[in-house]
């Protein structure tokens, strides 16, 4: 992406041996000066590796995130809701593509990233290892999961790696409809019958904690955060973003008559923020390790789609090769 054919990048063939202190210092000065780093610029291998990991995880999350919502396309309660959900799920596929392209500029092919996802080597956001049991879950996902994603992605528009930042600009532009359509679903259910409101509350109860876990482990237990902040890959820490999310979301829940499932939640006048209860990090790490309720189902759905589509990809390549050789023959005879 961004005019970068990686086979033409000399740095990739040299490896870490070429990391002189002068090059590292010049790189760090550029980053500290808020300059964008572009794919063919010199960068430390650790910076490249961190970015490949982060961007590919982000891309995997977009496309795995299509699965829990895709589950409800055929059962959306009206044609309007179905059209909206289809458009949203299509957007997520597009977001995955932008992100895979950005990661590819670092010298890892999309197919290699897919392999890492399918083999379980690469991770994706833990949130998608929870099931979507009712229609209200589609509302909760848009409102909370996309809301948390936006909170995370807005500062990434200024991340130091140019292709990642540009992908984030596109994603953020498109994402706000996702959050609003989710909130609208929750708002309508909350204003509906007793059963509908209960369904909305149940969805909030199940999605609240996983959503605030989306920001990742607390700062004092997040080994990569300091380096990532220094390299301006991350612009804000996990806890800062989590606090922001809680602060904006709690009043939204209250305004539609829903209760955030946290007995310790209360406004702290002195801090100017909400205090919230302890997060169950053991559950988080278990889900990271693939023990989420539907983790196996998600990876299987992904792998099946990839394997069952193989013949289409191969046939298209064979067709393109045949057309190209026919054109060559015609040119030779012409």
């Amino acid at each position: 992406m961004y005019t970068t054919e990686m086979s033409k990048n000399p740095q990739l063939n040299k490896g870490a041996a070429a990391e002189s202190p002068e090059l590292v210092a010049a790189f760090e000065a550029r980053v500290a000066n808020d300059e964008f780093i572009e794919p063919k610029d010199w960068m430390p291998e650790a910076y490249r590796k961190t970015l490949v990991r982060q961007i590919s995880q982000h891309a995997h999350s977009e496309i795995v995130g299509m699965l829990p919502e895709g589950n409800w396309i055929t059962r959306a309660p009206s044609l309007r809701r179905k059209a909206v959900l289809l458009a949203k799920v299509q957007d997520e596929g597009g977001h995955g593509l932008y992100l895979y392209s950005a990661a590819e500029t670092l010298g890892t092919s999309r197919d290699e990233m897919f392999e890492a996802l399918h083999s379980g080597k690469a991770k994706y956001s833990t949130i998608f290892n929870y099931p979507t049991l009712t229609w209200a879950d589609i509302g909760a996902i848009g409102w909370l999961v996309d809301g948390a994603a936006i909170m995370n992605q807005v500062p990434l528009q200024r991340t130091s790696f140019g292709p990642y930042a540009r992908a984030m600009v596109r994603v953020c532009k498109e994402e706000s409809f996702h959050q609003r359509q989710g909130f609208e679903i929750m708002m309508n259910l909350s204003a509906g019958t007793v059963d509908q409101k209960a369904m909305a509350q149940d969805a909030l109860n199940r999605w609240w904690w996983p959503s605030i876990m989306m920001f990742g482990p607390p700062d004092d237990n997040s080994p990569n955060t300091a380096q990532s902040v220094r390299w301006r890959i991350k612009r804000e820490t996990n806890d800062e973003l989590r606090q922001k999310f809680v602060d904006v979301t709690v009043p939204q829940a209250e305004s539609i008559g829903l209760t955030v499932p946290d007995a310790d939640l209360k406004w702290n006048e002195a801090r100017g923020h909400y205090d919230y209860g302890a997060i169950d990090w053991e559950e988080f790490w278990a889900v990271v390790k693939g023990e989420g309720p539907v983790a196996k189902e998600r990876v299987k759905a992904r792998t099946d789609a990839w394997e069952k589509g193989a013949w289409v990809r191969e046939a298209a390549l064979a067709h393109a090769a045949k057309q190209a050789s026919r054109r060559q023959k015609d040119a030779a005879h012409g």
């Binding site: 597009g94 932008y98 590819e104």
Partner: peptide, 19 residues
């Protein structure tokens, strides 16, 4: 605008349109 993967130009155009 960005990039896409495709086996040939026609499909690249379609993917670009969708993406």
């Amino acid at each position: 605008a960005g990039s896409v993967h495709a086996p040939d130009g026609d499909i690249a155009l379609r993917h670009a349109r969708d993406t």
